[in-house]
């Protein structure tokens, strides 16, 4: 693989993201909400500065769970699919580049834009916390940021996988929105419902939950704040008691796999499947 080509394509993707109105809107909205959370979660008076960090982080976890998968999935799915639909992708692939360079270039470019956007939001919130004298557990805050970045990359990978599996931009966008809905709401409710109806063992509930990268992020982020998953109920307690200190590395590995596996599948599909449709090709 020629990394100069990967970098050239990545730079173009960063420029494209900066021109993308939805992406700019997301960046602004995320930064404003993160700042608002950091200001609103401050305790009145001067007591318990430490507690304010936990409240801000908890608020940011929910913000990340809702916002980050949405933008990462739609960015990943629509970027590649729309280039294919306009014919720009076919023209790019007709140059002296290979499929892997194009896919990884696009991924790195979009990931750079996405992570910069997150860094801006978390950075503004962090500065607000520091200005109010909340400097304790800065490392914990940085771990939350790191986990949010891992979640963003995993959702971007899933977005890329969706893009190479479907033919139209509209289908890619619809599929990514459905994936977001499923991961954020339906997956959660489905596990709860199934657990009640089937009297599922706690261990099974925990392992099913870990299939959802959002749940893994949530568990890792909460574990980072308060050292146990009591807040998540019996499944959380089971996980803390059963896996102990191995739980955090397990969750990190799980998130990392959610970055690598969908991207590897996307790369394989992109390289082996005729990405230019017959309708466009025949003339």
């Amino acid at each position: 693989m020629d990394f100069a080509n990967v970098w050239t394509i990545a730079q173009k993707e960063v420029r494209d993201a900066l021109r993308n109105r939805w992406f700019v809107l997301f960046t602004i909205a995320f930064a404003v909400l993160a700042l608002a959370l950091s200001l609103l979660s401050q305790p009145s008076g001067t007591q318990l500065r430490l507690a304010s960090y936990g409240r801000t982080a908890a608020g940011l976890i929910n913000l990340v769970l809702l916002f980050v998968p949405l933008i990462a999935l739609t960015l990943g799915a629509s970027g590649l699919a729309s280039d294919r639909e306009t014919g720009a992708l076919a023209y790019l692939l007709a140059q002296p580049v290979n499929h892997s360079e194009v896919l990884f270039g696009k991924y790195i470019g979009m990931a750079t834009a996405l992570l910069s956007s997150l860094a801006l939001g978390f950075g503004i919130a962090g500065i607000a916390l520091i200005q109010q004298g909340t400097t304790a557990n800065a490392l914990g805050y940085l771990v939350t940021v790191g986990l949010a970045c891992l979640l963003a990359l995993s959702m971007l990978s899933v977005g890329f996988l969706i893009a190479v599996l479907v033919h139209k931009t509209s289908t890619a966008l619809t599929s990514s929105l459905f994936a977001w809905l499923f991961l954020v709401f339906i997956g959660d409710l489905g596990i709860m419902g199934a657990a009640i109806i089937t009297q599922m063992p706690i261990a099974t509930i925990f392992w099913i939950a870990t299939l959802n990268p959002l749940q893994m992020f949530k568990m890792a982020a909460i574990l980072n704040i308060q050292a146990n998953l009591e807040v998540l109920g019996p499944a959380g307690l089971y996980a803390t008691e059963t896996y102990g200190t191995a739980l955090m590395p397990m969750l990190l590995l799980g998130l990392l796999l959610w970055v690598i596996v969908p991207l590897a599948l996307a790369q394989f599909t992109f390289s082996t499947r005729s990405f230019i449709t017959a309708k466009r090709s025949l003339a």
Partner: peptide, 12 residues
């Protein structure tokens, strides 16, 4: 060197 039928460039 390739000149396609449908000219689709990136927004630049």
């Amino acid at each position: 060197g390739y000149v396609p039928q449908e000219l689709s460039f990136f927004e630049m």
